[in-house]
Design a protein around this nucleic acid. Sequence first.
DNA 1: GATGAATGAGCATTCATTCAT
DNA 2: GATGAATGAATGCTCATTCAT
Lengths: 219, 219, 219, 219
Amino acid sequence: MLKNNTTSTCTKQKIFDAAVMLFNDHGYDGTSVREIAKKANVNVSNISYYFQGKQGLLEECFTQFFEQYLQFIEDQIGQLKSKPADVCLKHAVRDILSFQCENHYLSRFIWREISIDSQVIREIISSYLMKERYFYKILFEQAMEDQIIMKQPISFLVIQLKSMITMPFLNSQQLREVWHVFPHEKYFIDYYMKNIEKWIDSLQITSDGVTREKDVAVL
Amino acid sequence: MLKNNTTSTCTKQKIFDAAVMLFNDHGYDGTSVREIAKKANVNVSNISYYFQGKQGLLEECFTQFFEQYLQFIEDQIGQLKSKPADVCLKHAVRDILSFQCENHYLSRFIWREISIDSQVIREIISSYLMKERYFYKILFEQAMEDQIIMKQPISFLVIQLKSMITMPFLNSQQLREVWHVFPHEKYFIDYYMKNIEKWIDSLQITSDGVTREKDVAVL
Amino acid sequence: MLKNNTTSTCTKQKIFDAAVMLFNDHGYDGTSVREIAKKANVNVSNISYYFQGKQGLLEECFTQFFEQYLQFIEDQIGQLKSKPADVCLKHAVRDILSFQCENHYLSRFIWREISIDSQVIREIISSYLMKERYFYKILFEQAMEDQIIMKQPISFLVIQLKSMITMPFLNSQQLREVWHVFPHEKYFIDYYMKNIEKWIDSLQITSDGVTREKDVAVL
Amino acid sequence: MLKNNTTSTCTKQKIFDAAVMLFNDHGYDGTSVREIAKKANVNVSNISYYFQGKQGLLEECFTQFFEQYLQFIEDQIGQLKSKPADVCLKHAVRDILSFQCENHYLSRFIWREISIDSQVIREIISSYLMKERYFYKILFEQAMEDQIIMKQPISFLVIQLKSMITMPFLNSQQLREVWHVFPHEKYFIDYYMKNIEKWIDSLQITSDGVTREKDVAVL
DNA sequence: GATGAATGAGCATTCATTCAT
DNA sequence: GATGAATGAATGCTCATTCAT
């Protein structure tokens, strides 16, 4: 019996998609491979076949997410020569928000699971997080050097920025049900982006009106 | 036979403490009752005896956390008559940060698990989150009414505020290992609090110098 | 706190009664001591205290039942000098039916559990069953000697008789729900007894009208 | 690795057979899935795999038994046109006795467990028992209509008949050990059948010699 | 590539019982 | 007499994975 070849979606992708949705809902440990196989409408053994077990599926999720996520920041670092640092930063943020908006299942799962103390996860993410740190440092250091942002410890800036970037997607369900805000609709990004931009602007050397004008000019 | 009376900690508390630590590390689904019992150095059956099963332990965690968490906000609402709204807000934030700092295991676990789509969790938290929404609305509405904060949708303000409040504790391990920032040490609160205060101040009607002065005077 | 002394029912009896009802419903293995204690409204430990464990409760059930059950047959054996054997037999049957009717919970449980291959049960009942066999043999042998019943293997007679005596109580629920016959109401005994008497009469030397007349005379 | 192919019996059947034997000995609640798996020489998980849990195994037992049991009665109803009702009844009884003789483990278990007040069992058997009632009514009503059996409540007749049919198999162990009668040997059926036939004959209109002759003629 | 039978370790829970009070 | 905390064994079941087909 030819089962799913009508849809031309290959088994591997179907497994991945089903896994992301279920991981998103019930977490990694709360999801069984049988559930994934059932949702993907494939045989359980295929999971081991394509991903070398449940753990492989997890690794794939992290890899897929971080490869893209980091690219957005790296891209803007490449733009530092042609644009002010704060504009690059804002662009990176916007790209990441859009990316998460389009992949909200995956995003929520990643930002939740990343806080689990498991050796597996540690091994996967450590290099990614180091890269992330390196990239953010470059952006903020440039902004400080150019006197766009007041000199201060970068670590706290990144912590705050990342909070604002990730939270709406980690708690998307809560936002929807409690605050009637829908983080995976396009208009959310637009509005939310303004808040983040305002926060970035508030980091600027406020007594100096020049930087502020420069910013407006670019936008 | 008195077994564990050397520590004078009763069985129920030992189970709870062990559970919080393990839930914090490996998540609810990633922790088995056997591990909890082992860590608590008690018999497995006692978990069902005292908490009516693993789920009861989860409920206890959420209850313990939210009862205290909400109290801090409610307390400041009671202070609205005697203090400006923004000062109350700042006090609430500081109290919550301190509370999370002292209960960082529990906090991390709660903020992670709250994003899981499980019926059990939903039932536990729905009332707490509604209360939280109600309390935050009161604080922010008062601040707007008193023209301390610019009129704008409260939902987005709360989302941003909560992001900043919870993130450092949810990602405490990452902060430690990647950014060398230690959210459960006292000095972190002091420094981080300043950033949040700055963000709150940035919401003020900036063209009006009076509010700014009033604020300084109170502090 | 004096809990149940108002009703003057002692703990031991309450446990026994609760046990009989639950054993009747869910069988010995299907009933937990906790359920018994709960139904009896006493502490679990009392079961071990009064009956030396769950098994002791089982033994008590069998003892209570068989001591009375056998007494009814033995009584009629004592009447063999003054009444024809078949009349004694019928009296014994009627007494047993009445007894079961009044103790239908216990009866159902006993006749079901007796068919379980457990060492415990074997040890309890073996002596009772031997006694039962001895008693029934005396009754039937006398009846055959007096030419009231045709000479034939006693074993098969007893098997049939016991079938008819026990079945309605073992399957009381089925009788109620499927056949709308209610074995623990008084009128059932009266009607059912006639059927058994008819069966006993059918064992008589039918060509001989004298025995039949004698029977009628006695009744 | 072909493990058990020496016996050519598949895993599912091995589980079922082992379950029947153990249920027969220790009852449903007195038997653990581990014991079944051990006796069947298979892995415990296969029980859930093939029967969806212990309960499914129970359902299978009841289904297997009643499907066949009822067939024997239904078959004789189909013969009512060509044979007198009492002859059909006797044939049905003989077939059922033979069936139980060949499946004495299953039979004993069924007739015991049927008296347990469990929702599961109720749901399984209710339809079967209704069918049984319907079939027996047809047979007895036909016999009464043809004046082979005296008019009387059918319920009591069926209760008595079923008592005689089931008891020897429910109490087979007792019969063996106490009465030295062996219900699962062929000759038992032959002898016991005569007793039941005699009982059926005793239900006939005795003053009328014609029916009696007809009966003899057919046999 | 894909399947389903089969495995063994692990899961949360419940069991009857004990014991100090 | 009666209680409730505590125990260790056993319960039914699910887990991720393997393997021959």
